[in-house]
Amino acid sequence: MIRQAAFDHPVTVAIVGATAGVLAFAGLVIGVMTLLGRGTPELRRELWLRTGSWCLLLPLMMGPVLLGREWVIGAVTLLGIACLREFDRATGLFREPLVTAIVVIGILAANFAALDHWYGFFVALWPLTVGVITIGTIPLDRPAGYVQRTALGILAYMLFGAGLAHLSFMTNEPGYRPILLMLLTTVALSDVAAFTFGKLIGGPKLCPATSPNKSISGALGALTVTTILVATLASFIFRGTPMAQPHWLILFGLMVGIGAQAGDLMLSSIKRDIGIKDMGTILPGHGGVLDRFNSLLLVAPAAFHFIQFFVGFGMGQPARLITGP
């Protein structure tokens, strides 16, 4: 498989540089706010916490992408399992260890298929894992709760296994780094933009019963920023391919922007239904891993199949690296 150096693509250099610059600027702005006593202490504390977490998270997100495909696949596998753990403890699925174990195996298998560059197995794992989850607990002869545990298991595999593993499969494309960095940073920026526009403009709420803090202005602002940014970056990344036409690029940007916010609202719906505020406590200022990465859950498969339609991933690269003859 062809391997490119970490900073071969100018978009990679631009995204890493811009991210470092934005973090430094954010630290500077909040530092000045603190010195001048601007904003409430609660707001400043929240901003410091969020920025501090980003300083830890961004290297953890970007580091594996720059290091190589195996690192990305390892990181995505760990992310999937961490998300599953938070999800199963929030929903009560952890009280069904057999279903949880099947989902863990599904996550490992999906990422193995990506590591192996075996697209047939990667696609087949969808129905296969769902099938195993569906029949897995029948031998326990405990029909009470069957629908709930099976449905939660399938949802968990869909989101944290099959869904997230699309990020892993993208690494079979030699030029995967700018694509992944674009998705990771723009999805993160979508959250920040929604927060910022919402605070600056305010106005009517988007879905007050689902997420009381999200406003329509925040959602539209974030969608605009994300669409423009994704379309611009994608125009450089996919230059010379059938995807590099303005309408497709804008559609791609819209899809990433909507997917990011839909993922956020999906997790909010889960949390409101259960009656909890955060999915975990591991990231100060954010909550749990899922609270931070929810926007990526729906974007990963959507972006993969959009790009796959026009360009493809790993076309011409050797397949079945591990299981092949």
Partner: peptide, 9 residues
């Protein structure tokens, strides 16, 4: 045992 949609204690 019926399924209990309840977070961990």
């Amino acid at each position: 045992m019926e399924f209990d949609l309840r977070p961990a204690r």
